[in-house]
Nucleic acid binder design. Sequence first.
DNA 1: ATAAGTGCAAAGACTTTGCTTATTA
DNA 2: TAATAAGCAAAGTCTTTGCACTTAT
Lengths: 137, 137
Amino acid sequence: MRMTAQRKAILDTIRKLKTHPTADELYSIVKQFMPRISLATVYRNLEMLASEGYIKRLNLGGAEQRRYDGNPEHHYHVICLNCGQIGDVYLDEDLDINSHIIHSDEFLINKVHLEFWGLCPDCSKNLQKKEGKVHEH
Amino acid sequence: MRMTAQRKAILDTIRKLKTHPTADELYSIVKQFMPRISLATVYRNLEMLASEGYIKRLNLGGAEQRRYDGNPEHHYHVICLNCGQIGDVYLDEDLDINSHIIHSDEFLINKVHLEFWGLCPDCSKNLQKKEGKVHEH
DNA sequence: ATAAGTGCAAAGACTTTGCTTATTA
DNA sequence: TAATAAGCAAAGTCTTTGCACTTAT
C-alpha cells in the first residue's frame, strides 16, 4: 500500500477525530485543506485502510450510514438516541455472553457484536431540563 | 390501519417465513400469488407493520440490506459468516452486560443491542468436509 | 518504468416519494 | 364518501466502478 498524500491526509484526519465519521464527513474535512480530493478517493481509502487494520469499519445496526473509527483497538460503541452521536465503550474481560444462550437455531457461534444505545452527555443534560421526549431510533 | 389485501398478504407471508426477509425477497414471494403488488407497497407496509408492532424491523450491523422479522417477540439474531443466513438466538434473563462496562464516554446507556455471527448448520457441515475458508464479512 | 492510486462522472443498489386511481370502513 | 392505501414511475441517498491521467516506489 503506497502512502499517498490523500491517504495520509485521510488517516491523519480520522485519527485526530474522536468522532466516528462517515465517508462524507471525512471528505468535507479533508477537502478544506486538500480541495481537489474526491469522495471516491475517500471511500476507497477508508476501505483500504480498514482492510489493512489501520482503522476500523463500523457496522452499527443503528446507524443509517457506514462509519469508520480511527482507533482500531477492540472496543464497543454507544449511539445517542437523541442526536446520533457515537461514543466509545470498553468492557471488562469477564463478560461471557455465550454461556447465556439458551437457543441458537443450531448455529455455531463464533463472535458477538454488541452495541449500546443511550444518551450522550449533552443530550442527557438538555433533556433533564426540558423533560422532552427522545427520538425514535 | 386498514387491513387491505396487500397488507394481509405481506403479514401472512412474513409470519410463515422462518427467515428474516428483505423487502425485495418478500416482494418476490407475494408477487407469485398477487402479481400486481408493487415493491413500494411492500416497503410501505413493512414499515407500517413494524411501527404498529406486528413485525420487527431488524437493524443488523452485519447485513447489507434491511431485514424484517415476522416474530416480534424479543430475541436476538445470528448471521452466518459464510452464506448470510440469519437464525434466532434466545438468551436467558441473567445476563447483565451493564455491570461489565468500564468506560462509556459519559453516555447514559439504556439499551444494548446484541448480534451474533457464526456458521449456520448447512455451512458448518459443508465447511467441515472441505476445510474451506469462510468469507469475510 | 510500472504498478498503484486519483479524479471525475456515470452507474448501481436500495429505499422513499409524488401523484393519480382504487378501496376500506 | 372520505380518508387511507395501492400502483407506477421518478427521484433520492449512499456507495461503487470505469477510465484516462498521475504519482510513489
